[in-house]
Amino acid sequence: MDTDKTTLNPGRLLAQALFFGLFGLVIGVFSHWPVYQVLAPGRAVVKVSFTHHGKPVSECRQVSVAELAKLPPNMRAPVQCPRERSPVRVEVDVDGQTVYQHVARPSGLSKDGASSVYQRLELAAGPHEIAVRMNDDARQTGYTHTRTGSVALRPAQILVIDFDPEAGGVTFK
């Protein structure tokens, strides 16, 4: 009678060593290899990213005296502005070709939050003409912010197209 317990003889030890050697080999190989090509040689990355509150969807409204009278005293604001923000429309052209178009909806249940954009674009390294057009006001047709510029992208360079009102609008970093 036996319990099927294994006794470790030299043969078994060798087999265990081979098994764990194989296990170690799998880990050793696949934790480093094959090399992953994240970005092809001679390519650069453009990231279009911003978080921006669009303008209110409509004008503020002067509240009449009669309407104010119906409101509780603590709510009698003479001007009422809509909470909802305009969606932000963005277009990016590279060398005259539109490479990205997107309408970013305002966040929040009442659509009163910021509109966010993140897009990763890959371009060939070298000089490029980049044009960015934005509209953040539903009351206006056309574009409220534009930026055009020449950039010389180095291989693997990351160019960030952001929106910073304090820096004058669309920025290239």
Binding site: H32, Y36, V38, L39
Partner: peptide, 14 residues
């Protein structure tokens, strides 16, 4: 963060 990694020795298991 100004440069994108091009080639990486990736841990494919994870």
């Amino acid at each position: 963060l100004a440069l994108a990694p091009t080639q990486l020795a990736l841990d494919w298991i994870v």
